[in-house]
Amino acid sequence: MDPLQAVTFFTVGAAGWAVVTTRDPLLQTFVAGFFGLTLSLLFVVLQAPDVALSEMVVGAVAFPLMVLLTVAKARTGDRK
């Protein structure tokens, strides 16, 4: 295994662990976005650029945006 691959695997594992252990939904959204970026970097290192582009769009942009909108909508609904 290449050292770059090993470091990237470790970074993805650490980011995944950070997503699981984060309790605040707003902070967890940002950590999940970082996890998506590290996962797309792993796919680039593993020479799968098409999968990396898909992961970047879904995991680092679309999913965190949808969660942020949902959290914002839920928090404004609680203030009545």
Rank of each mutant, 00 (worst) to 15 (best):
M1H: 08
M1L: 11
M1D: 05
M1S: 13
D2I: 04
D2F: 04
D2V: 05
D2S: 15
P3T: 12
P3H: 09
L4W: 05
Q5S: 14
A6L: 13
V7W: 10
V7P: 01
T8F: 03
T8D: 05
F9C: 09
F10V: 09
F10H: 13
V12S: 03
A15H: 01
G16Y: 06
G16W: 04
W17L: 15
A18Y: 05
A18C: 08
V20W: 10
V20K: 07
V20Q: 09
V20T: 11
T21E: 11
T22N: 03
R23V: 13
R23I: 12
D24W: 07
L26N: 08
L27N: 12
L27M: 12
T29Y: 03
T29Q: 01
T29G: 14
F30Y: 15
F30V: 11
V31S: 00
G33P: 00
F34C: 06
F34S: 11
F35Q: 05
F35Y: 12
F35P: 00
T38V: 10
T38W: 06
T38P: 01
L39V: 08
L39D: 00
S40T: 07
S40V: 02
L41K: 04
L41C: 09
L41I: 13
L42E: 00
L42D: 00
L42S: 01
F43W: 06
F43Q: 14
V44G: 00
V44Q: 06
V45P: 01
V45W: 01
L46D: 07
L46A: 15
Q47R: 14
Q47T: 13
Q47D: 15
Q47V: 13
Q47E: 15
A48D: 01
P49Q: 01
D50H: 11
V51Y: 02
A52W: 04
A52V: 04
A52K: 01
L53E: 10
L53F: 12
S54F: 12
S54R: 08
S54W: 06
E55W: 05
E55K: 04
E55P: 01
E55M: 14
M56T: 14
V57S: 13
A60H: 02
A60S: 15
V61T: 12
F63C: 08
P64S: 06
P64Y: 03
L65R: 00
L65C: 06
M66P: 00
M66D: 01
V67E: 00
L68I: 09
L68M: 12
L68K: 03
L69T: 07
L69S: 06
T70P: 00
V71Y: 03
A72W: 09
A72I: 11
A72H: 09
A72Q: 11
A72Y: 09
K73P: 00
A74W: 08
A74Q: 09
A74T: 11
A74K: 11
A74V: 11
T76H: 10
T76F: 10
G77E: 07
G77M: 07
G77P: 02
G77S: 07
G77A: 09
G77N: 09
G77C: 02
D78M: 14
D78L: 15
D78N: 12
R79M: 10
K80N: 13
K80P: 14
